[in-house]
Design a protein around this nucleic acid. Structure first.
Lengths: 131, 131, 131, 131
DNA sequence: GTGGTCTAGACCACC
DNA sequence: GTGGTCTAGACCACG
């Protein structure tokens, strides 16, 4: 598919999958009516246990992002893009706030956090970027 | 003490403790020779199990940040400030890179991530801040 | 497994486990890539609490002798044999020096310590032995 | 007094004291009727907590090595030399057996243990020795 | 099934 | 009072 797993970033693997599916829907990479890869296929692709993918898909169904079509697969719902766009910014903002708060609480010297953030944003854009 | 635990932020409690102790040492709030709160005291204060604190203190000992003085308590080592200052920036940078990478991969529209970051940095500084 | 615990020999149980795992790696009984017994299994076998085994395994992970494979078990690392061979001799020498020093300080009569050591070495070899 | 404490050798401090008192009696450095240093004095000398010395003296009293003379101090008993000579060899042998057994179980290559023991015995004698 | 984390509570050695 | 060790048992994420 179109995304990657980092087993060491602290976020549970199944949650990395749900997040990235949501992001794909938010950005239009996955559209309503489209089918996501089968559990087995995605599991193979991500080199992950099928049960892990299955759990992620389960969560996405209860979030009404995916819905099962018997015998066929899991389909992106009509309402998914709206929900996912709202979720995307929220999910990212939450993690961002968490790390910035920790940084601030760590008493980094004045401006040091800003420098760090700027450097990392620059690094990101240099690499091939959002813009 | 001088810090707080968020049981729901995804980081293990014992690790939140190790990080914040390191930050306190890095910033000079805790100095070499000084004693950290006792296992029981900190556990009470943070409303956490003593063994959880003990585990955090154990890691800090194997990181040579704390050393035990039998029957007396745990003392910040001489080398701790150096190590902790190095660790602080690394620990924060790692989390920051992780969230920024995820944001970029989520295909946020051009400039949207920068706006989000700027907004959160501003919010942080407004609150009472690093500077 | 291939070893035994003596709850009364003064060495903490978790440390007896770490030492014996290291010895097993050093001697080639455990090879890189091989999995150690699960926490629960070893705990059952040694009639010890699983958390005690877990603690030992935790130390071995921070010593880079074992590494976790999620949901599968703990694997001997590539670098383990090298580290463990170095550690084995060191761990044994330290204990040996400690007891020999004490014996010497105890003012045992001339030659008595040598006799004692010889007798015990002989006894050891008689039993079924290093050689 | 005539001995030293090693806080890091795994033996409890109070037990290091009892052992060394016994060794001193066994070797004749301390004779029946002689008084051992007061709790406070020995504690100061060894840089150890008085309660630790007190516990050691308590054990030695219940082993009938020392006996209290009200208002005066603790005296080596008549029977102490006999008991202590017997204990000395036993205490040392036990530790020696424990380390040799561990070494053997560690599958050190043939002769390697003997070499190690010889080297350490030589080192000991070189330093200023029993003989 | 696996390890990781956390809680609750015990005993010990030492101050 | 202190930390160190151990036990018992819980829930979670992952395979």
């Amino acid at each position: 598919m179109f995304f990657t797993i980092d087993p060491a970033n602290g976020i549970a693997i199944y949650d990395q999958i749900t997040r990235q599916i949501k992001f794909a829907v938010a950005s239009g990479v996955l559209e309503p009516g489209e089918f996501v890869p089968s559990v087995r296929e995605l599991a193979r692709e991500l080199a992950v246990n099928p049960n892990t993918v299955s759990r992620a898909y389960g969560k996405l169904q209860s979030d009404d992002v995916l819905s099962a079509v018997r015998g066929t697969g899991l389909q992106v719902t009509k309402k998914a893009p709206q929900r996912c766009r709202r979720d995307r910014i929220r999910l990212i903002r939450e993690r961002l706030q968490s790390v910035l708060k920790e940084a601030q609480d760590s008493q980094l010297a004045s401006g040091e956090l800003q420098e760090l953030v700027d450097a990392e944003m620059k690094r990101l854009n240099g690499k091939g970027a959002t813009r």
